[in-house]
């Protein structure tokens, strides 16, 4: 049976991992290669890098990070943040990314999803959707970290990008992100049930049961978390052991 995936997410700023990664015995907690290797050793199924570099001068640094990680870590790598055109997608894939995620650029120009999928294949294209609840059973797509509303309904947008050729959806609840209260399971399930491509649940994980809930109640195909793993509270292996104990198929 296909295993549900656990995906640690790393924020990278100008080539360094930020958000206080705190592994025991790690020489340099800011080195993306070391952090990625540690997650690989713990059994992470994929790793996602979110490039939050603000300065455009430093934008190419992420390419070197991806190159270095891909030389040493042999699991799938997804990279997002600042992807604006098909050339950006190509550059990241050539550096060693397996998938590239796009968010604002897809909202501004949905044709980019189709163009990119047409050039590099749907399997490489992830559309990241940041959603906020606006009414019972209704969520709206936001961009710029939840500041800008788009007027797009999250479920309809997910269906649209899937039809344009996205291979996967990274779905983040802006209501839950950073709260540690667990995924927005209603949002996750509504989107997952509405589309035939995989959905990664994100935003709000505070304990290991939240990850399992994302799969069992939210029907997510994969779960993404950052802080729960970064601060050394839990390892990926612990998460998988708990998920297996709750009857979820995992790679252990």
């Amino acid at each position: 049976m296909l295993a549900k995936r656990i995906i640690p997410c790393l924020d990278v700023n100008a080539g360094r991992v930020v958000k206080g990664v705190n592994f025991v015995e790690l020489r340099d907690a800011g080195d993306p290669v070391e952090v990625a290797r540690r997650y690989d050793e713990q059994g992470a199924d994929e790793i996602t890098f979110l490039d939050i570099t603000a300065s455009s001068d430093d934008r190419n640094i992420i390419l070197h990070v991806v190159e270095q990680v891909a030389e040493q870590v042999f699991i799938p790598l997804t990279v997002g943040g600042g992807v604006r055109c098909v050339d950006d997608v190509r550059r990241l894939l050539n550096a060693g990314a397996d998938k590239v995620s796009m968010n604002t650029a897809a909202v501004n120009n949905p044709q980019l999803v189709a163009d990119a999928a047409g050039k590099v294949g749907s399997q490489c294209i992830v559309v990241a959707i940041d959603a906020k609840q606006v009414a019972p059973g209704k969520w709206e797509v936001f961009t710029h970290g939840g500041r800008n509303r788009t007027g797009l309904d999250a479920i309809e947008w997910a269906q649209k990008v899937a039809s344009l050729g996205a291979g996967e959806i990274l779905l983040t609840s802006m209501d839950r992100d950073g709260t540690k209260n667990g995924f927005d399971l209603g949002l996750t399930r509504a989107v997952s049930d509405a589309i035939s491509i995989p959905v990664i649940a994100s935003g709000g994980v505070g304990n290991l049961d939240h990850l399992a809930d994302g799969v069992t109640l939210g029907r997510a195909d994969a779960v993404l978390a950052a802080s729960i793993f970064h601060f050394g509270d839990h390892t990926v292996r612990e998460a998988k052991e708990l998920m297996r104990a709750r009857g979820i198929e995992v790679r252990l």
Binding site: M1, L2, A3, K4, R5, D45, S122, Q123, G167, E168, D193, S196, I197, P198, V199, R219, D221, A222, R251
Partner: peptide, 15 residues
């Protein structure tokens, strides 16, 4: 799937 849930395509992940 065995649990009645829809299996997504692409088949993506560790099997």
């Amino acid at each position: 799937g065995a649990d009645g849930a829809r299996l997504k395509v692409p088949h993506m992940g560790w099997n």
